[in-house]
Each structure stands twice: as C-alpha cells, then as structure tokens.
Design a protein around this nucleic acid. Structure first.
Lengths: 213, 213
DNA sequence: GGTTTTACTGAATCGCTGTTCAGTTAGCTT
DNA sequence: AAGCTAACTGAACAGCGATTCAGTAAAACC
C-alpha cells in the first residue's frame, strides 16, 4: 500500500472530509466514512488530526481558504473594477449547484457553539469583506462607482456624519452585499421553486447597482 | 407526582426542547437533558414523541408557529400598512438577543439533510412571505408604497415583462426582504463587532425603503 | 368502589462510533 | 544492507445516549 507524506495525506483527508460533509452533512459525519472514501483506516484519520472535532474545524478552514483563493484570483485580474466585483460576487453566489453552499450553512450551525469553528468563520468572512471592499474602493477611485447611496445610509445611522472614512463605508457596503448573498443562498435551498438562479442573479446585480450607482 | 394531559405535557416538552436547542445547540441535544429540564424521565419524552428526530422536528415547527403567531398579530393592527410592515420586520430581526436566532441557523442545518425539517422550514418561510406580501399589497392599494423599483427589477429579469401580477411582485419583494434579514442575522452572529444592532436596523429600513419607494 | 385507561418511571439493553494501542512495514538515511 | 523514522493498520475498548419494556399509580370513567 502506498504511503504518502503527512502533508499530502492531510490534504487528501481534508478534501474527503469536505466532500463527505457536502454530500451527507455534518450531523451524520463519521470518521470511518471519511477514511472509507480514501480506502484508509479510521485510525489514520485520527493519527493525522488527533480528534474528529479538529478534523472538522480544519476541513472548514480548508474549504474556506480554497474559495478565497479563487476569489482573490478573480479580484486580481486586469478587468475594470466593476467587472471584477461582478466576477467575485458571482463566484460567491450559489449559481450552479446548491451543494457547495450546504457546507457553509452546516458550518454556521457548527460555529454557533464551537468557538474554534466560529472564529474560523469570522476570519473567512473578514477576508471576503476585504476583497470586496478593496474592489469597491478601487472602483470609486476610477469613478466607476459613485457612492451616493451608501453615504446617505451611513450618515443616517447612529454613528453620525463625522469620522466615516471611504474604506469604512466600503466595508459596510461589502457587509451588506455578503449578507444579501448569504440570505439568498438560504432561500435558494429552502424554496428553490420561488427563486430561480437567474432571477436571483439579477436581484444581486440590482442590489449591487443600487449600492454603487 | 403531578400528571398532566398528553397535550399539555407535549407543549411543555416542546418548550423545553426549544430552550435546550437555543442554549446549547442541536449538536449536543440529548433527550435526557430535555427531560431533566422538566424533572422528568427521558422515557417520558420518548413516550410522547416516539423518537428524538420527531421531537426535534416538532420543536422547530412549534417555535416557528409561535413566531408567526406574533407576527400575524402585528400585521393585523389598525396602523398604516407601512408601520405594520416595519413592526413585522422588526420582530423578525435579531434586535435584542441573537439567542433566538441561533435556533433558526441550527434548523437550516438540520433541514439540509432531513426532509421533514426541510419542508417545515419551507412552509414557515412561505407563511412569512405571505404576511409580508399582503402588507405590501395593502400598502400599494392605499398608495403608501410605490413599486417603481421592484417593477423595474422584475422586468429586467428573465421572466419577461408580461404575466407578472402585483401579488407576484409583492411576493418577490418579500423574498428579498427576508433574505436580507436572514443574511444580516448571520453577520450579526459571526461578526458582531462589525455590525451593531442599530446600524443593522437602519440598513434594513433603507433596504425596505428602496424596495418600496 | 372497582375497573380501565394512560401518564409515567427505572433499569437494562444495544448499537454505534471515536479513540487507543500494540504491532507492521514502507521508504529514507548512512 | 542495516537501521531508523514515521505512515499506517486491525482489533479491541469504552462511553455515550437513544430506545425498550415491564411495571406503577394517578386519573377518568362507570
């Protein structure tokens, strides 16, 4: 039987874990199933990750970083900022299969009462916000975006008109966009008949346009 | 030891289950803990609900119906439609404690791979949409709301301009509002430092205003 | 007051699954 | 080629927790 270096095996196991979570969910995740998926013994999984809890936490971080990696590449193109923003948003969206989204909903649930997972999600979320926020700022600088609306919203809030920098406003804007995307993903899973992927996509476009017109 | 009628006991057990889920989450929910919360034997819980899975499903439906009941009352006031819409939206929002929201995130996760729970959530979601949708239609009739924006969005979508009734448009509008609320709730839980309840509230107001200006 | 129904319990069961551990062997080093 | 390190396995363990079941006693009913 072929042996592999620890780092390679760990990667394989993480990938298998992610697949397993996506296909059957966290509730019924068994270490044995992850191992079986690779034709390995359950002991090996524990050998590499010490505990199931740690395995799960690592798997979420792994999946999250993968998505982020792709997003960062999309954000680093030479296209105009507006287009790059669109690309990144499209990538975040549950366009094709809702399958890949299920893992995040499962992850939220796990994060509710597990501080390790929770902080992983906080971090991933902030990374996404940073990507979007920077794209927004970039677009503002080249005047692809206005910001009329966001400014108005921010000034109406309790913060008061002073002390809100452009980047803070962009952060908030990113937060709103991501929130909308998350919420729509949930809708897509629980009421797929009421929202088709296409309408969903157009709604998101409209939302972004309203934020940055 | 005091005995109670089956229906009363069931209610008690459901309430206790909801509390238990809210405080420690679904992952670690044990029948024994629910029973202990009421000073009863675990066997009794099973006696009434046959299986843990059924108990959990019933608990979600129970909690959901409770929230809906309150929402319907808020929607049936004599206030102007705009105000009632506000009230219902505020009630849906995670204003005070995020605690009550955790159960829904847990519920989504459970619904991902449990068709019983999933359909419960579909139903609850449709109920919420109906409430909002009817309020929107009511507001339109009295011309408290315009609908300029929503019309424009709908016509831009793949459906084509024909065949979209007012009530369909209101439904879609409700879907978008609920999605935004769901997404913001998730944000509030995983990045409470980046969004205060107040700003969140103002964002929602702005969103609704944009939809119905 | 007796009988039946039905809420309720305690203890035992039983399956499941994460984890341990003693041992095996592939593959690198020298 | 010998030896060491580290990946890997199989079988056993262990604990948890849902479910069962035989039995108890409140109510409800007559």
């Amino acid at each position: 039987m072929s042996r592999k270096s620890a780092s390679v095996r760990r990667e394989e196991i993480l990938a298998a874990t992610v697949e397993e979570i996506e296909s059957t969910g966290l509730r019924t995740l068994r270490v044995a199933d992850v191992a079986a998926r690779l034709g390995l013994s359950p002991s090996l999984v524990i050998y590499h990750f010490v505990t199931k809890e740690a395995l799960v936490a690592a798997a979420f971080a792994h999946a999250g970083e993968n998505d982020l990696y792709r997003a960062r590449r999309l954000a680093a193109t030479r296209k105009p900022a507006a287009q790059r923003l669109r690309d990144v948003v499209q990538w975040y969206m549950p366009t094709g299969s809702t399958r890949s989204w299920k893992i995040w909903i499962d992850g939220w649930s796990a994060g509710l009462f597990d501080d390790g997972v929770k902080s992983t999600f906080s971090i991933l979320d902030r990374e996404w916000k940073t990507i979007l926020s920077e794209l927004i700022v970039a677009g503002l600088e080249v005047q692809e975006f206005r910001f009329s609306h966001a400014r108005e919203v921010t000034e109406a809030s309790a913060n008061g008109p002073t002390g809100t920098t452009v980047s803070e406003m962009a952060d908030d804007c990113a937060t709103r966009i991501l929130a909308y995307l998350d919420g729509l993903a949930v809708q897509l899973i629980f009421n797929p008949e009421s929202v088709s992927p296409e309408t969903l996509s157009s709604w998101v476009d409209a939302f972004v346009a309203r934020e940055l017109e």
